[in-house]
Design a protein around this nucleic acid. Sequence first.
DNA 1: CTTATTGCAAAGGCTTTGCAGGATT
DNA 2: AATCCTGCAAAGCCTTTGCAATAAG
Lengths: 122, 122
Amino acid sequence: MQRLSKQRELVYFIVKQTNTHPTAEEVYQIARKSMPNISLGTVYRNLRQLSAEGRIREVQFGSAPDRFDGMLNIHEHFICTRCGGVSDIAPTLINPTLPGKIVSTYRLDYFGVCETCTSKKC
Amino acid sequence: MQRLSKQRELVYFIVKQTNTHPTAEEVYQIARKSMPNISLGTVYRNLRQLSAEGRIREVQFGSAPDRFDGMLNIHEHFICTRCGGVSDIAPTLINPTLPGKIVSTYRLDYFGVCETCTSKKC
DNA sequence: CTTATTGCAAAGGCTTTGCAGGATT
DNA sequence: AATCCTGCAAAGCCTTTGCAATAAG
């Protein structure tokens, strides 16, 4: 049976209230501020467990470290190829089906340049 | 300047003619059949270099090892959640744009159960 | 009291890299 | 000859795991 641990709830709230799709390391650094001797291993364990339970979601972008997302409703992502930022996008795919196949879900990532980077001409 | 090496061309042809989106390890195993002392490091180096040049493409599915794709034209993927197979899908996304953002490309993965796994009721 | 969870550190998997020898131009 | 590329092995990065101690129910 599952127990309620301070560490897990902390990890959960961090992912939930951070909209930047943090990596495990980032969650760890934030967590340490309020719980200095939480360990990286515990953060990883809880991220994995929370994902398995569906309380958060795991997303990968490129071969970089895994990121975690507290947004559970169906959404898509926009990845800025200049600043690397990841933002959530409301669903644009109207009818996610394919002939002859059973489609249960999909993942749609758009790549491009975000508003901020477009205005800064860096 | 770049030179023509037997190893790189072998890696290239393997990715090009294998439509299963092989991992580096799989490319390595295939390569060894015709070039027994090619090294894994060389396979990795060449996969990376070929991707950088745009001769092949790198794709990631989940946190599993990276996979490589010889199909260069725009296409989408269907990942069978039962057998793990990855197949190419002709573009279904009609208009890959987002208001206020410059979209240069996108990636669309469908997840579900493929025809084979649907018929086998395993 | 029972056992899920933790912190720590070691191990694991995949990938990259330093090096000296070999291949290509 | 110049230097790109290779094989090998070691190192690197991210993540998982074994263990004894701790905490939750």
